[in-house]
Design a protein around this nucleic acid. Structure first.
Lengths: 222, 222
DNA sequence: CCGTATCCGAGCCGATACTG
DNA sequence: CAGTATCGGCTCGGATACGG
């Protein structure tokens, strides 16, 4: 990418990760862990193979990822986030939290993946009642499924199915994520096709993180 | 910008602010407050007028800024961040904090502005001794100047000159910002041309924010 | 199967010139 | 001052083909 030519840490950051697809590649590596080329391609529907290949080279050159030849059983290259790449997590969290406001409309041809179902609750909700007993919530949306585990006051998530969940949320992505992010209440989510089975009371334990007002406006200004 | 076509809040956010220059326009509006076209152009060295014009239209259409005709004395359009636009502050903070690591090398032709000198201390340092008496630090770098005010446990900054600062830091941007961000110690900053006059002890009151390790890696993954 | 290389049309970007 | 118009060049996206 062409440099902005500004001695400013925001501009410098964008010099490195401002290119199209770059931050989404980091997203996948953060959510999936070390990936093969094909894992990334699957997690990035719409990316062209040549572009992905080019970006991976750039990211490696910039020190955000390392490329290693996996041990014999796999025998293929693995892309792994470096310390510098991992440090982008707060950026992706902030961006994802801000982007929630644009999730209200679901476009018919949008792609959807289980890992995008999973990071929302983990990053953007907290357990209101940390001392309550552990609980498991099964999420299902568009054939993709993930599990929320409430334990030790933390909201963990993982992909796949739970054996005996306390609560099952099943419906279109917009309904499931809208409910969990606090943009929809149970009634509205139901209208959008959400099915809720099991202990509804668990929903009150999940509090969506609220974005705090900005307050810089009159701070830096002359 | 072409949509990524993914039902993911990060991708949605990038659909809106992923275009080149867009986040830097938001940066200027956040740091400067409501701006005229020319204020933005000055704060964004390198941007082409047509591109700035196009971005402002897109940002207005997306609801991040409003364009108002200023009252008679000014008689020109003013661009102002909306609530949605202001809410990007955490994203720019996270990006700017991450980008600090790339500030070690100063490229000869990089542009520099006083507001970029000011936001660093305000966003990325804290006052270690909140009960100590107020103090004023004058920053000067590349003909641009800003003032740090330590008061009530907060680190405020503003552009321009202070009348009677307790401490004056003067030198190349890299030396001033490097010292304040904790990337350089006093000795190294001095070698890079930093001049320090006044109460050096105030420097120990400013603690650079440290970025905490990411810990999602094994959280969302199956 | 994994990843790279090449080609091409469409659209975005950047520089300059121009207008009210 | 506040933009608009134009145009060359580059990047992107998609397809295809190639080498390990």
């Amino acid at each position: 990418m062409r440099s902005y030519g500004q001695y400013c840490s925001i501009a410098r950051a964008l010099d490195v990760v401002g290119d199209r697809w770059t931050l989404l590649i980091v997203r996948e590596l953060l959510l999936q862990g070390p990936c093969r080329f094909t894992d990334l391609k699957n997690g990035l529907p719409g990316v062209a193979a040549n572009l992905l290949s080019a970006r991976l080279k750039e990211l490696e050159a910039a020190g955000l990822i390392t490329r290693e030849d996996a041990p014999p059983p796999v025998a293929t290259a693995l892309y792994t986030l470096s310390e510098t790449g991992l440090a982008l997590e707060p950026v992706l969290r902030a961006l994802g939290l801000w982007g929630l406001r644009f999730m209200a409309v679901e476009r018919p041809d949008d792609a959807f993946r289980a890992q995008w179902l999973a990071y929302g609750p983990a990053w953007f909700t907290t357990d209101v009642d940390p001392d309550a007993p552990p609980a498991v919530i099964q999420l299902v949306a568009s054939d993709e499924s993930a599990v929320i585990e409430l334990r030790d006051g933390q909201v963990h998530t993982r992909l796949g199915r739970a054996t005996d969940p306390d609560l099952i949320l099943d419906g279109p992505p917009r309904a499931v994520l809208g409910l969990l992010s606090g943009m929809l209440d149970l009634q509205r989510a139901g209208q959008l096709g959400l099915s809720v089975r099991g202990r509804r009371d668990l929903l009150t334990r999940l509090r969506p993180v609220t974005q705090d007002r900005a307050h810089t406006q009159d701070e830096v200004r002359q």
